[in-house]
Simulated assay, not measured.
Amino acid sequence: MKKSLFIGLTFLVFLLIGNHVFGLTVGNEIVSVGDLKHEVLLKCGQPRSKEIIGYIDRVVSDERIRVMKIEEWIIAVTSYGKTYYYSLMFEGNELKEIKSAGEK
């Protein structure tokens, strides 16, 4: 009974997470949400593509609004002979989201 419940809850968690990834292993490095662009660049190398998706306003203090660029990088990670693609979404200089973008 407990084993069935555990398996069901585990399946539900993966279903809710979808294709979002919270950390990504690239070689011997780990790329995580919250990393800065230069850290990701050092760990992953140049992305396959970079695209500006839009801009977002963030309130920094009561009187100041900061406009930040939203940028998507596509990177390729090869593991055991397969190439996996990931979408890295940055707001300003900070990595906000990692999503699976397929495999080849």
Rank of each mutant, 00 (worst) to 15 (best):
S61V: 09
C44E: 01
Y55G: 03
I75M: 04
E103D: 06
V33H: 02
K3W: 12
T83F: 06
I7P: 00
Y55F: 15
S61F: 08
L95Y: 01
G34K: 06
E71L: 06
I7R: 10
R66Q: 14
I56A: 12
K82L: 09
I17V: 15
G34W: 08
I65A: 04
L5I: 15
E29T: 11
M89V: 08
I56T: 14
I75P: 00
K96D: 06
V60W: 11
R64N: 13
R58Q: 13
G102N: 07
K37Q: 10
I98L: 02
I53T: 11
K3R: 15
K104R: 12
T78G: 05
I70K: 10
M1L: 13
S32F: 01
S100A: 08
V33W: 02
V26I: 15
E71P: 04
K37M: 11
L95M: 05
I75E: 01
G27L: 10
Y84A: 06
G27H: 05
T83H: 07
R66V: 07
K37I: 11
V13A: 12
K99P: 00
V13Q: 01
K96S: 09
D57P: 04
E103W: 06
R66L: 15
R48Y: 11
I98F: 00
V13E: 01
S32H: 05
K82Q: 11
K104A: 11
V67E: 14
S4Q: 14
V59C: 04
S87E: 13
L41R: 06
